[in-house]
Design a protein around this nucleic acid. Structure first.
Lengths: 231, 231
DNA sequence: CGATTCTTTGAACTATGTCAAAACTGGTGG
DNA sequence: CCACCAGTTTTGACATAGTTCAAAGAATCG
């Protein structure tokens, strides 16, 4: 086993997975109490790209879409945050991305200064922050590979497989697999157009790899063949 | 000024920019002495994707190419590391990417345990690690946007502009701008093919945005027009 | 130099994008 | 409960940016 705390990083699995669960119970309670739980509706903006990074966030329930855009035309989704995710805990002065809820959500929020101060006195929490950001970075490597080097069908297969794994790790029912995000969101995540996403999903269905249901997808055995080729 | 150390992150500018310079002089000397300076030739592998992450690195001289691949066919370059960059200081158990020198280089290396131990006792160094990884993550956001949402000419223009800025921040002469990496490397960085890179560079030259020289490019005023549209 | 590797250009192809319209979905209010 | 509406998803026909395959120049290095 690793001898140093710096080596205890978890394997990657979506934006800042499970940050709060890395803390000990007492600290977690105390930290939670310093922030507030805010119920959010669908499509609410938690923070906007370019705005001063005044607060940190954690998703408690729901899904939050993290994206980077220019103008209001082009948008690249850099991740979907699920419960347990910590957002902007290592942000620079300004937010480099935007965060918007997909459907209703429960979000915990805290002022940056409070968070930073709390963390500063607890080296083990600094390690947790490092683990969290490092995990995000690892995810981003795979996402860059996907964006730059995978054809549409592999992008989709990969996306569906990872989404299933993440939800199932949270104990959710994944058969059929819920897809709370719109086709446009999927397109913006994979660097495709809505139309290509639809057509490629239809193609996967014809191949017998998936079954498309409203708001859901059933993943079938054939999908593994495709995922096998994905490295 | 920010009241907390957690807020003192630098703006992004390439892989783990300038990690060592964030340390105080005494610590830097001590840390440097704990590792070793290794001269490297061209195309030497510092570490390989999938291998156990046994050491941390810092580029002292030269350029190191960071990439992720499957098989030996498809490859996505996730960054070019320049002098001052720290590599794998927050890595998980295994390397998620490979690092290969582009041309001769001087690299500082240290065993993970030594590094982790040294850092563990110095909270301010933990902050430096966080700043470093956070900066990498910010870069990766922009890179994801580029890969997913920019056409070839914007990708190239953006790449050239950033490369110039990074070199010039290091005090290098950027007129004409040296391009030590091959066309294939540029292609693998931007998610294009070698041929598209060549053709797009030729197009930019015809438009009067650049002038192509062997191993170098001269950036002309017209390039700023293109960069202006890049957000 | 001569060989090898890298870069550039050409011609043909294709995956994906664009534009447009139809089909579906979920919500609202009568 | 149904009919309608607004938004989303799907499908079709066509356009094109970027890829692929091939071969001709350039640069680099023993």
């Amino acid at each position: 086993m690793a001898s140093s705390t710096l080596m205890l990083y978890a394997t990657a699995s979506g934006p800042s997975t499970d940050f709060l669960s890395r803390l000990n119970l007492a600290d977690r309670r105390q930290l939670m109490a310093m922030g507030e739980r805010v119920p959010r509706g669908a499509n609410e903006v938690l923070f906007a790209q370019g705005a001063p990074a005044a607060r940190c966030f954690s998703v408690i329930e729901g899904v939050v879409c993290l994206s980077r855009g220019i103008g209001d035309s082009r948008r690249q989704i850099v991740g979907f945050a699920l419960p347990g995710a910590a957002l902007e805990i290592a942000a620079q002065q300004r937010h480099e991305i935007s965060a918007v809820t997909i459907g209703p959500a429960l979000v915990w929020e805290i002022a940056r200064e409070s968070f930073a101060q709390f963390v500063s006195h607890r080296p083990y929490m600094l390690h947790a922050v490092i683990a969290s950001v490092a995990s995000d970075l690892t995810d981003s490597y795979e996402q860059m590979f996907s964006l730059g080097r995978r054809p549409a069908d592999e992008k989709l297969a990969r996306f569906l497989g990872e989404w299933r794994d993440r939800l199932s790790r949270l104990g959710k029912d994944v058969d059929p697999l819920p897809l709370p995000m719109s086709r446009r969101d999927i397109a913006d995540y994979l660097g495709l157009t809505v139309e290509t996403v639809c057509r490629t999903l239809a193609k996967l269905e014809r191949r017998g790899a998936i079954e498309i249901l409203p708001g859901r997808v059933r993943l079938l055995g054939k999908l593994d063949d495709l995922l096998g080729n994905c490295g």
